[in-house]
Simulated assay, not measured.
Amino acid sequence: MAGRSLKPIPKPDLADFKVGVDNAIFSVDTAQNRLLVLLVMRQEDPFLNQWSLPGTLVRQGESLEQAAYRILAEKIRVKNLYLEQLYTFGNPGRDPREAPDSYGVRYLSVSYFALVRFEEAELIADGVSGIAWYPVQQVPQLAFDHNQILAYGYRRLRNKLEYSPVAFDVLPEVFTLSDLYQLYTTVLGENFADYSNFRARLLKLGFLCDTGVKVSRGAGRPASLYRFDAEAFAPLKDKPLVFI
């Protein structure tokens, strides 16, 4: 109708966010062929006495990555590790503290995933009554949306092993091809690839350097020790590769 004024559509209030970091810390137990994830027992509400991924709210003046490394340093001692930002989880209602009477505060989780070797990772239990490695396939119901974060991290880890040298960040400086193959089978399953084909493919890529040293383990033939050659890998870094 002519001359009729339109009322402005009211804009919703902007959300007030708190930002946390949650780490899916995986370890590879090649001795027992298990992929494990680190869980901690929550010591406060919400989800008191329930297992969760290690997490924290980001402190003033702290970057997201610094918060992720802080959580790692508070829970485990380890020399070799791989850490990568995973995903941001921020659906409304993912945290019970987002109640209507909480002044609209929303809780975001910027998640990271880490990979360490089980043999090298020493748990730090100072001030923590519940901290444990759980087989990925036996994880209970976790606090918040941490089962979803864990599932996302597990998929990313499997994908990273297929096209990137992430495994060499957690292996010792020198290793046998059997060591490398065992790490892959622990994460991807026994039937991911035949050892002979795996060995041939990795050597053909040209970034594994034979040290000329052999090591004897058990009654089998001595095995050659290899080293990851970062310089040889550099030209391939941005090219599509398939490691397996």
Rank of each mutant, 00 (worst) to 15 (best):
R70A: 08
R217T: 13
Y82G: 06
F233T: 01
L177T: 07
G206Y: 09
F168E: 11
L39F: 05
Y195D: 00
G153A: 15
N23D: 13
N80H: 15
S52N: 14
K214A: 10
L202E: 02
P165A: 03
G20K: 02
E65C: 02
Y184C: 02
D45M: 04
L236M: 12
E65P: 00
E162W: 01
N191C: 00
D16E: 14
V78W: 06
C209M: 11
F168Q: 11
R4S: 14
N49K: 13
V28I: 15
A200G: 03
R97L: 15
N49L: 04
D45Y: 04
L57Y: 07
T88F: 01
F47V: 02
G3V: 12
A151M: 08
T211H: 04
I71D: 15
D29Q: 02
Y152Q: 11
Y87N: 11
V78K: 03
D95E: 10
T56C: 13
G220T: 11
S109C: 13
D29Y: 06
T211E: 05
V139A: 04
D179V: 10
S111P: 00
F17K: 08
R4V: 15
R117P: 01
F26H: 01
P10S: 08
L180W: 07
E119H: 05
D13R: 11
P240I: 01
I124E: 08
T176K: 10
R77I: 09
F243Y: 08
G55P: 00
S216N: 09
P240F: 02
F192I: 09
A125N: 12
R117M: 14
L38K: 01
S27I: 04
K214S: 13
Q60V: 06
F228N: 02
G93P: 04
Y226V: 03
L72T: 11
D45W: 01
G218R: 08
G90E: 13
A67L: 12
L180A: 06
A223I: 00
F144K: 09
P96Y: 10
R4K: 14
A132E: 15
R77W: 09
R201F: 00
T211K: 09
G220P: 02
F207Q: 01
R106P: 05
V174R: 15
F89R: 03
V40Q: 03
V37F: 04
L202A: 02
R34W: 00
Y107D: 03
S111N: 15
D126C: 03
E190T: 12
L38F: 02
N23F: 03
G130H: 05
F118N: 13
I71Q: 13
L81W: 14
D22E: 15
L150C: 05
F26M: 00
F228H: 05
E119M: 03
I9T: 15
N80S: 13
S178D: 13
Q50A: 08
V187Y: 05
Q182A: 15
S109L: 06
W51G: 03
L38R: 01
Y163F: 11
R227S: 10
L83I: 14
I131N: 05
V166E: 04
G104H: 08
G130K: 07
A67D: 09
V170S: 08
T211I: 08
Y184G: 02
D16M: 15
A99Y: 08
R221Q: 14
F168C: 10
Q50P: 01
L64A: 04
A121H: 07
T56S: 11
P96M: 09
Y163A: 01
L157M: 14
E44N: 07
P222L: 10
K18E: 12
V28E: 00
A232G: 04
D194Q: 10
F228W: 11
N159V: 04
T30P: 00
N159K: 14
